[in-house]
Design a protein around this nucleic acid. Structure first.
Length: 179
DNA sequence: TACTCGATCGGA
DNA sequence: CCGATCGAGTAA
């Protein structure tokens, strides 16, 4: 059961993670339980984390057990625990070997990276799983389009430790028409 | 093995 | 403003 068309992994393998982040705005995050409910919510806030040089990116520590998934080809999920409490949902992007990801920070009706995963029941069990209907968590395009003017860009949240990288305007969001 | 701190949130 | 809560990363 889909609303639009499913976005395939290849769509997320461009080297331009910042552009991919922006392009994810307005797409649908779809969570489905086997033989049960399917929820589709529009993505309204994201952040790009790009490469080992980006000090705000977990891959700035290089390859570790946790960051290994970021080195995969785009199209799989990177889910990790933050502050011991919150599950954070990221989509791995770029070609294999280039560690990068887009953090899903807000959906229409559910703002906040920790809140949206809690609301949809998303946990680390999705880590390294493909974004596809078969895994129960995927992305769709239903034709919704944003004007260039509707998209705001700001520095990323909570990465003040990252020096000059904290200043990059790699957070993108739009204000939903309907609150 | 000890220690620090975080891509956050909710309550005081 | 502050406490919750725990695993990754680092140093030793």
């Amino acid at each position: 059961m889909t609303v639009g068309h499913v976005l395939e992994a290849g769509v997320f393998q461009s080297r331009d993670t910042v552009a991919l982040a922006r392009a994810l705005l307005g797409k649908l995050l779809v969570a489905g339980e086997a033989g049960g409910t399917v929820r589709a919510l529009r993505i309204c806030e994201v952040e790009a984390y790009h490469g080992e040089a980006d000090l705000a990116c977990h891959a700035s520590k290089g390859r570790t057990a946790r960051t290994e998934v970021m080195y995969a080809a785009g199209g799989v999920w990177y889910v990790y625990l933050c502050y011991g409490i919150h599950e954070m949902l990221n989509l791995v992007t770029g070609p294999a070997g280039q560690p990068s990801a887009v953090l899903i920070r807000g959906l229409e009706g559910i703002t906040g990276p920790g809140r949206l995963t809690r609301a949809l029941g998303i946990t680390r069990r999705f880590n390294a799983q493909p974004a596809a209907p078969a895994t129960g968590l995927w992305l769709e395009d239903d034709g919704f389009r944003l004007t260039r003017a509707a998209v705001q860009a700001t520095p990323r949240i909570g990465v003040d430790y990252a020096g000059e990288w904290a200043e990059k305007p790699w957070r993108f969001y739009y204000t939903p028409a309907n609150g």
